[in-house]
């Protein structure tokens, strides 16, 4: 993974159309601004992880349960 050190107000560009701005650092919390075209999705990591976990839980494991669903 590429790791860069930045100060408040400094930016990082990803490609030609995504700009990341470090807007505030307070203790353990960092506020990050993201300027990106609307066709680029921005999702918090823990939310994506939660969806991922939920998908893993939802994989069908038993045909018996499925048969019961049919009733």
């Amino acid at each position: 993974m590429l790791v860069l050190s930045r100060k408040v107000g400094e930016t990082i560009w990803i490609g030609d159309d995504v700009e990341i701005v470090i807007s505030e650092v307070k203790g353990e919390q960092v506020k990050i601004g993201i300027r990106a075209p609307r066709n680029i999705e921005v999702v918090r990591g823990e939310l994506r992880q939660d969806i991922s976990d939920s998908n893993a839980e939802a994989v069908i494991k038993s045909f018996e349960l499925l048969k019961n669903m049919k009733k």
């Binding site: 939920s54 839980e57 939802a58 069908i60 349960l65 499925l66 019961n68 669903m69």
Partner: peptide, 9 residues
Amino acid sequence: SIVSLKDTI
């Protein structure tokens, strides 16, 4: 929507 089936409905 994805359903996560548990032991009971």
